[in-house]
Structures are given as structure tokens and as C-alpha cells.
Simulated assay, not measured.
Amino acid sequence: MLRSIASFAFLLMGARILGKQTVSQMSIFDFIATISMGSIAANLAFNTDTEVHHMMIALGVFIAVTFLSAFISLKSRRGRKLFAGDPTVVIENGKILEKNMRKMRYTLDYLNQQLREKDVFAIEEVLFALVETNGTLTVLKKPHFRTVTRQDLNVPVNREQRLPIELIMDGDVIEKNLTENHLSQTWLQEELKKRQLKRSEVAYAVLAANGLVYVDTYKDHIKSPVDEE
């Protein structure tokens, strides 16, 4: 039990040191290092034939090497290229670059799957498609296939200069958010009164970037709510 707790603590500490990079954002080097650290931590938890301090040293070394590689990548373009590699173009002006795909052992089936995930069902719509260093596909459509924006139509928009501010979560008022954004409890109560609500009835409330307040109550008043996973 103590070894398992120590293993979890070391992994948690390593994750905090290495930052918030998600699995989908990992380079090949990051993925290998993470798998190795997980294997060492598992052995620390249940392999009683190995000394605890040996496992901790090995885990510490892997964390240090991964952190060092991230630091080098941050400071040096050559370092980034060494550890992460470069993106690879797989479609150019609607043409599939089979040679580049063969280098990565990247199949047409997988290319089509990733294109569909980007809402692209016709390859001729694509100007460029690149496989990033973390394996995701980035797609730039040809100009006449791109989604029209308000800027394209010269439609005026209201400026948004802040993130949404959570006011109530799980029925509790987030005092810190009110204070940091110069909002008062009185103002919040007035907003709830406008909706004929009491604070105890509110599950979630947020001040959107456009200045409007969204409020969700515990009672949704839906006669036949969808109950599917």
C-alpha cells in the first residue's frame, strides 16, 4: 500500500513538473517518455523484489530528462526539430502526396477518417493538409470552400474583451470571481431577482463575454428529458 501511494505521488509530482500537455498534444518523444514513466511507477507499486529507492531514482531521471527535453525545445528550434520532428504535407492543392504518406506509413483510410473529422468529404476541397508532430491532421480548405465569417459579410459585431466569468457553480457563489471582476453580491442578487429565482435554486450561473448572464436551475421543467448515454 505504501509503495502504491508513493508511486501515485511521484507520478502526480512528475505531471505537475512537466505541465498540462495532454495526450493528444504529445510528440513521439513525449509519448515514449510517458509510457516509460508509467511502467516504472507500476513496478514501484507492485514489484517488491526491487528496491524502492532504485525505482524512485529511475522515475526521477525520466522526469528530469523529459523536462530537460521540453526546456531545450522551448529554447532551440533545432531542439524542437530533434525531439518533435516537422509537420508533413499529405495533400497539396487537392492532390494526395503518396510519397510523403509512405514515409510515415500513413494510410488512405486513416487520411479519409481524419478528413471527415474536419468535415471534409471531398479531397478536391483541400488546399493543404498537414500531419502535425502529434499525429493530428490540420486542413486548410480552398478559399471558395471556407466557412463565411461576419467579417467577410461586413456584419458589425460586439467586441468581447474578457473570458466568461463563473458566478455560481454547484449552488455555491464563487466569491473570488466576483471580487476580481468588481462584481457585488447585490448585483448578483438583482440578476437572479430579474429571473424570479432564489440563489438556492441555481445550479450554475455565468457572465458571458457579451455581458449577458446565463443561469441554469436545478429544476429544468422539462416534461420528458432525454435519458440516454
Rank of each mutant, 00 (worst) to 15 (best):
L2F: 08
S4T: 13
A6R: 08
G14W: 00
L18P: 04
Q21D: 06
S24K: 11
S24G: 09
M26P: 00
M26S: 08
I28W: 06
F31A: 07
T34E: 11
I35P: 05
S39I: 14
A41M: 11
A45Y: 08
T48F: 09
E51T: 05
V52I: 14
H53K: 14
H54S: 02
M55I: 11
G60D: 09
V61A: 00
A64L: 03
A64F: 12
T66R: 06
F67L: 06
S73Q: 02
S73L: 01
K75Y: 14
S76N: 08
R77P: 07
R77A: 07
R78K: 04
G79K: 00
K81P: 00
F83E: 01
I91V: 11
E92Q: 15
E92W: 03
I96C: 03
L97I: 02
K99N: 10
K99Y: 08
N100V: 04
R102G: 05
T107A: 10
D109I: 09
N112Y: 12
L115K: 02
E117N: 10
K118Y: 12
K118R: 13
D119R: 15
D119Y: 11
F121H: 08
E124T: 13
A129H: 03
L130N: 01
T138R: 10
K142T: 14
R146S: 12
R150N: 09
D152C: 12
N154M: 14
P156Q: 04
Q161Y: 14
R162H: 10
I165G: 06
E166M: 11
I168Q: 04
G171K: 03
D172P: 02
I174H: 04
E175A: 14
Q185S: 07
W187R: 14
Q189W: 02
E191H: 15
R195S: 05
E201Q: 01
E201M: 10
Y204M: 02
Y204E: 05
V206L: 15
A208W: 08
A208P: 11
G211S: 05
G211T: 15
V213D: 00
V215H: 06
T217Y: 04
I222E: 10
K223Q: 15
V226H: 15
D227V: 06
E229I: 12
